[in-house]
Amino acid sequence: MANSFELDQIDRKILELLQFNSRLSNQEIASQVGSSASSVWRRINALEEAEIITAYGLTVSPEKLGYGELVLLQVSLEQHNDDYLEEFTQLVRSIPEILECYATTGEYDYVMKVLATDMRSYHRFLRNRLMSKAFISKTFSQVVMEKIKFQKVVPTASG
């Protein structure tokens, strides 16, 4: 459905505004895009129905909640049978400190972003929650030293 939706410049501007501040009212958006609040409301509903807008949210500072470490963790499975893949998927989804997980190409099967309060807690997480599982064969961790760019906003310009 989302593939057949044609975005115009007003739709793109609405998406841009909402990505930076999803709490804007339809009237505030309308004044910035040169439209009426009712037209903006209809456009936002259409963007939601086309699954271009998939969620609304906010960004929380991990550091302010006590997470001092961000680790990029690569994981390989022992085998790629359906049981191991399902167990791994369920495990990843059950651990809130795993923020993101992607199946990838290359030497490792998956890469994920993991939060930890400190390196000792990360070591416990790795040893007790992952490496204790028979279906995980190896891991490779990279500790993030500095965040150079963090962007949740998807560019709205076409092309």
Rank of each mutant, 00 (worst) to 15 (best):
S22N: 14
T156K: 13
S61L: 04
L126G: 06
A37N: 06
G68D: 02
W41M: 10
K149M: 07
A50Y: 09
G159C: 04
Y84D: 06
R43P: 01
V153E: 15
M131F: 12
E107I: 14
Q142H: 15
V60T: 00
L17Y: 12
M131E: 15
K149T: 06
I52Q: 01
V154A: 13
S4H: 06
S39W: 05
I29K: 02
R127T: 12
F125C: 01
K13M: 12
A50M: 01
L91Q: 09
D8K: 00
Q79R: 05
E78M: 13
T139V: 13
L47M: 04
E28S: 12
Y67D: 02
F20S: 10
L91G: 04
D83Y: 06
Y84N: 00
T54M: 00
L72Q: 11
M131S: 14
Q74M: 11
T104S: 13
M1H: 00
E69F: 02
S137M: 13
E78L: 10
A46H: 07
Q74D: 10
V111R: 10
Q19T: 09
L17C: 13
R42F: 03
T105K: 12
Q19L: 06
E107S: 14
L73T: 00
M145W: 10
H123I: 05
S38F: 05
S61D: 00
M119F: 03
S94H: 13
E16A: 11
K149E: 12
L126M: 10
H123C: 00
K152G: 15
I95D: 05
H123S: 15
I52E: 03
I14F: 11
G106H: 10
S94Q: 10
M131R: 15
E49L: 06
L70H: 03
A46D: 05
R42A: 04
M1K: 05
D8Q: 07
L72K: 09
W41C: 09
S137K: 14
C101I: 14
A55V: 04
R43E: 10
K113F: 09
H80K: 08
V33S: 10
I53E: 03
L18K: 12
E16G: 08
A55L: 03
L115M: 00
V143K: 12
F125S: 02
L130A: 08
Q19K: 09
L24A: 07
R120I: 08
N81T: 07
I136Q: 05
M131A: 08
K64F: 03
V114D: 09
T89I: 03
L7I: 02
D8T: 09
E48T: 05
Q32R: 13
Y67W: 05
M145C: 01
V40S: 04
S76R: 10
Q142P: 07
N128S: 12
A37F: 06
N3R: 02
L91M: 14
R127I: 08
T105L: 14
V144G: 09
Y110E: 04
I44L: 14
G66P: 00
L130Y: 03
S94L: 11
Q9N: 11
K138C: 12
